[in-house]
C-alpha cells in the first residue's frame, strides 16, 4: 500500500494530461457550439479552421525565430497568436461573405449550410497542405517543463515523479482566461447579450432591433479566436499535423453535443468529460493499482481497457450513450 505514490502516478499520467486535453477540447467545442447557436448549423470546417489558425501562428513563429526574437521561457507562438487570430478572423469573415451569407439570406435548410461547410473544409484543407504541407511540424520552444519528474522526486522523496510541461500550464491558464473573458462578454456586454438573445429567439431579437449581420460577424470573430487558440495550444502540447486536426473534429463535436449543442457551459463540461474518458480508458492502470494493492498481488497485465488507437471509440461511445439517454445533452442545448 502506497497511496501517495499512487496519487502522484495518477496525477502525472491521467489528471495533468486530461486537464490539458480537456481545456483544448473545451475551447474547440465552444467555437462549434457558438456557431451552432448563432448560425444554426454544425460547422464541419471547424477542425480545419483550427489547423489554419495554427498554421498562420507557426509561419509567424518561424519568422520571429529567424529574426532572433523569443519570449524567453515561454513559447514564441504566444507572441504571434494574436496576429494569427486576426488573420483567421479575416479569412472566416471572407468565407461567410462568399459562401454562407447567401444561404442565410435565402433561409436555406441547415443541412445545406452543413454541406457548404464541407466545401469550405475541402478548400481550407487544400490551402493548408498547399502552404505548409501535410507533414508534422513542431513549433514549441522556450523551456519545456515547469517541474520535471526528477525535481519532483528530489523535492518530495517519493518514488513516482510528477512532470508538468510548460505547454500544459499555458493551456490551462490561457483556457481559464479565455473562458472567463467569453462569459463576461456574453453575460455583461450589450453585444454579448444581443448574441444570446439572437441565439434564443431569432424573430424576437430581430423585432427588438438587433442587427443580425453584426451578431453573425461577432460570432465568426469569436469562433476564429477560439479555434486558433485551441489549435495552437494543441499543437504546442502535442504537434501540428493537418490530418490530426481534421480528426479532432470528432472529439470536439462529441464534446459540444454531450454538453448540449448551443450551450457554452455545456461545451466546457463536455470537453472535460470526453478528455478524461479518453485518457482513463486508454491508460494502462498497472502502475497505480500496483501501488494500491498489497505486495505480491500486483497485476500481471497492463490493465489497459483499450489501446490508445481506439480513443475515437471512447468519445463516440459516450456520445451515443448521452444521445440515447439525454438527447439534448448534459446541459439543455438547443434543438432545431
Amino acid at each position: 500500500m502506497d497511496v501517495l505514490n499512487a496519487i502522484v502516478a495518477l496525477l502525472n499520467y491521467v489528471v495533468v494530461p486530461g486537464v490539458a486535453y480537456g481545456s483544448q477540447l473545451a475551447l474547440g467545442a465552444l467555437g462549434v457550439t457558438l456557431i451552432f447557436g448563432i448560425l444554426r448549423f454544425s460547422n464541419f470546417a471547424h477542425g480545419d479552421t483550427m489547423a489554419f489558425g495554427t498554421m498562420v501562428t507557426i509561419l509567424l513563429t518561424w519568422a520571429l525565430q529567424a529574426a532572433g526574437i523569443s519570449a524567453g521561457p515561454l513559447p514564441t507562438a504566444l507572441l504571434t497568436l494574436p496576429v494569427a487570430i486576426v488573420v483567421t478572423a479575416v479569412v472566416l469573415l471572407a468565407t461567410d461573405r462568399v459562401v454562407y451569407r447567401f444561404y442565410r439570406r435565402t433561409r436555406a435548410a441547415p443541412i445545406t449550410l452543413v454541406i457548404a461547410s464541407l466545401g469550405v473544409m475541402f478548400i481550407m484543407n487544400g490551402v493548408i497542405r498547399f502552404i505548409i504541407g501535410p507533414g508534422e511540424q513542431n513549433f514549441a520552444d522556450g523551456s519545456r517543463f515547469i517541474i520535471t519528474a526528477r525535481q519532483f522526486k528530489a523535492m518530495t522523496g517519493l518514488r513516482e515523479g510528477l512532470a508538468i510541461k510548460v505547454t500544459q500550464g499555458i493551456t490551462v491558464v490561457l483556457a481559464i482566461v479565455v473562458v472567463a473573458a467569453l462569459f463576461w462578454f456574453l453575460n455583461r456586454t450589450r453585444t454579448g447579450k444581443s448574441m444570446r438573445a439572437y441565439a434564443d429567439n431569432e424573430d424576437l431579437a430581430l423585432l427588438s432591433g438587433i442587427n443580425p449581420e453584426r451578431v453573425v460577424t461577432v460570432a465568426w470573430v469569436l469562433a476564429a479566436a477560439l479555434a486558433t487558440i485551441a489549435g495552437v495550444l494543441y499543437g504546442l502540447d502535442k504537434s501540428f499535423k493537418p490530418f490530426t486536426y481534421f480528426q479532432l473534429l470528432l472529439p470536439i463535436f462529441a464534446s459540444a453535443i454531450v454538453g448540449g449543442l448551443g450551450n457554452p457551459l455545456g461545451a466546457i463540461a463536455g470537453g472535460f468529460v470526453i478528455a478524461f474518458s479518453e485518457v482513463t480508458v486508454t491508460y494502462a492502470w498497472k502502475k497505480v493499482v500496483g501501488y494500491l494493492v498489497p505486495e505480491g498481488l500486483e497485476p500481471s497485465g497492463l490493465l489497459q481497457l483499450l489501446s490508445t488507437d481506439y480513443k475515437f471509440a471512447v468519445s463516440f461511445a459516450i456520445l451515443v450513450v448521452v444521445l440515447l439517454v439525454r438527447p439534448t445533452g448534459l446541459f439543455r442545448g438547443q434543438s432545431s
Binding site: 454544425s42 471509440a313 451515443v320 432545431s336
Partner: peptide, 22 residues
C-alpha cells in the same frame, strides 16, 4: 437530428478503420 446522425456516422467510420488497422 440530422446533425447527430452525421456525427455518429463519421465516428463509426473512424472506429471501423481503427479496428481494421489494429
Amino acid at each position: 437530428r440530422s446533425d447527430y446522425l452525421a456525427i455518429a456516422t463519421l465516428g463509426i467510420a473512424e472506429i471501423i478503420i481503427a479496428v481494421m488497422k489494429n
